[in-house]
């Protein structure tokens, strides 16, 4: 009836991501489409109570590309 295509992991990006699409077999209509970020590090939590001058050094490690 419906086919689910899962793309996990998504490559050529920074971090991890998972994409799923459910397509109806005969009509080709997209029933459901989801994207999911599959990595959480919690930089907001790490930054709390730190010296503000350190903020730029730490947040720059969110993405190294």
């Amino acid at each position: 009836m419906a086919t689910t295509i899962i793309v996990d992991p998504l490559t050529r990006i920074e971090g991890h991501s998972r994409w799923t699409v459910t397509v109806h077999d005969t009509t080709g209509a997209i029933e459901e489409a989801n994207s999911q970020g599959t990595l959480f590090r919690g930089f907001e939590n790490i930054l709390k109570t730190r010296d503000p001058r350190d903020a730029s050094q730490i947040t720059s490690r969110i993405c190294g590309v």
């Binding site: 899962i6 793309v7 992991p9 490559t11 920074e14 590309v65």
Partner: peptide, 13 residues
């Protein structure tokens, strides 16, 4: 290698 691989998803894995 996730960042450079041209294949995606299960094919890459």
């Amino acid at each position: 290698i996730e960042t450079l691989s041209s294949a995606v998803g299960q094919t890459a894995l």
